[in-house]
Write a protein that binds this DNA or RNA. Structure first.
Lengths: 242, 242
DNA sequence: GAGTGGTCTAGACCACTTG
DNA sequence: AAGTGGTCTAGACCACTCC
């Protein structure tokens, strides 16, 4: 999939960088060389390079070239998630997923979820609570609300695996973007039940509303992490237009 | 500044969206209409639209059009910072900035800073500690390390204002990207001195290494927020190349 | 079938960096 | 002066959506 040319070039160059064929501080071949190398036009090469820059692999400099800034040490530190991409990786990691509950409730019972998902009070939602365990200890608790009609066949078995995979591969929907919010909250009684007693009794909560590529909101997720273990890593750029 | 065409179109459309001329759910004029409207080529319109999509204003849909997804309610919630862009806004907000200390120290004294800034142990650094106060109470503490030789003229007065402004306007450097890391930590003795006694005695720490557009690291910043007040808001997309 | 966005091309001119 | 990336154009063909 994704058979377009600039994506192939992006894949090729990014894996070269990750594998160390181009190291931090080195310069990639010039656009002119790359377009001959890959046999494409210049704009196509430039699209690939723009992606590399957006995602923190290179820094383009007028008159100089494209310098590699990717540093495995700053990126391998992804100890406990979580950029949007890793939300899935988390599910394929060493964690064991245990479904605590899976219920159907009307959206009106959870007004903040109802407004975030932009549905009527009567709309049925799946309410799903899962524990992510590692060596017997719960490290993450995920609380999810999903629109029932969009995935009527949801079961505990599916919830134990990857919901995203189910959405994308079984239902043919495509996940596209999300709004995310990170806060630090005292544990609730339910949290204590799910995590057990821990110090400090606080969680880092990553709340996100996930949208499909047709802009439909489909998932309201709160991912609770033990405060003492939480680490969020981000790469960001300035002046992408403003 | 930024007089290129696609940026002008981006500015024009994004302010139309923010001001409500195009509302969430509505569709922007088609690319064909926009290119006639602005009198530019299609690729130029598309660059502007791509920026709008990256920054969470619109969702482009093949065969349909560009739908506005910007929702002031999710974006105005920027109560206590802080995407990379807001790191500066924070400094022009209602906060009063108070310089707690400004010292010169060799990088070797702070090894984690030394390696992050990629300098020799003997390199002189500015160590700057500031309190951000609102109505007499400290809400944010910023601890900064800056390379001395890059800004030999740093004073408490400048530190009280915007360091970024000083860097960009006075020194002519251009800030480009940063790696950021969010964690929750118990307060140190110094934190308690700076914030006063608060409950819980935890801070949300946003650590970032800021780079100039020539890829030089120039600032190591730890922004400490009262855990109970902290909120980080983010918009992110999937499949920007991977 | 008409309209939409997605990809790609070949070429142009410019601004910046380095010798 | 030669090489680099930044912007912009005019046109082509494709895939998707909606009527």
């Amino acid at each position: 999939m994704n058979l377009n040319k600039y994506n192939q070039i992006y894949q090729s160059l990014s894996s070269d960088i990750v594998e160390g064929h181009y190291k931090a501080g080195e310069t990639l071949p010039s656009e002119h060389k790359l377009l001959r190398l890959f046999g494409v036009s210049r704009e196509t090469v430039r699209k690939a390079l723009s992606l590399l820059q957006e995602n923190g692999y290179i820094q383009k400099m007028k008159g100089k070239g494209s310098v590699v800034i990717y540093n495995p040490s700053t990126n391998l530190t992804v100890s406990h998630l979580t950029s949007f991409k890793e939300v899935q990786m988390q599910q394929t990691k060493d964690y064991t997923t245990q479904v605590y509950s899976l219920d159907e409730i009307p959206a009106g019972e959870v007004p903040h979820v109802q407004s975030a998902l932009d549905v009527e009070a009567g709309t049925l939602l799946w309410q799903l609570i899962r524990q992510r365990k590692y060596e017997g200890k719960t490290h993450i608790v995920d609380m999810d609300y999903l629109i029932h009609d969009m995935m009527p066949g949801l079961t505990e078995d599916i919830a134990r695996g990857s919901i995203y995979e189910y959405i994308e591969e079984r239902l043919g929907h495509s996940i596209s973007y999300s709004h995310k919010e990170i806060t630090f909250n005292p544990m609730t009684a339910l949290d204590i039940e799910l995590f057990g007693p821990v110090t400090p009794p606080y969680t880092a909560n990553v709340k996100s509303v996930v949208h499909l590529s047709d802009a439909t909101p489909f998932q309201y997720n709160v991912s609770k992490h033990l405060a003492s273990e939480f680490k969020f890593i981000d790469f960001s750029r300035r002046f992408t237009g403003e």
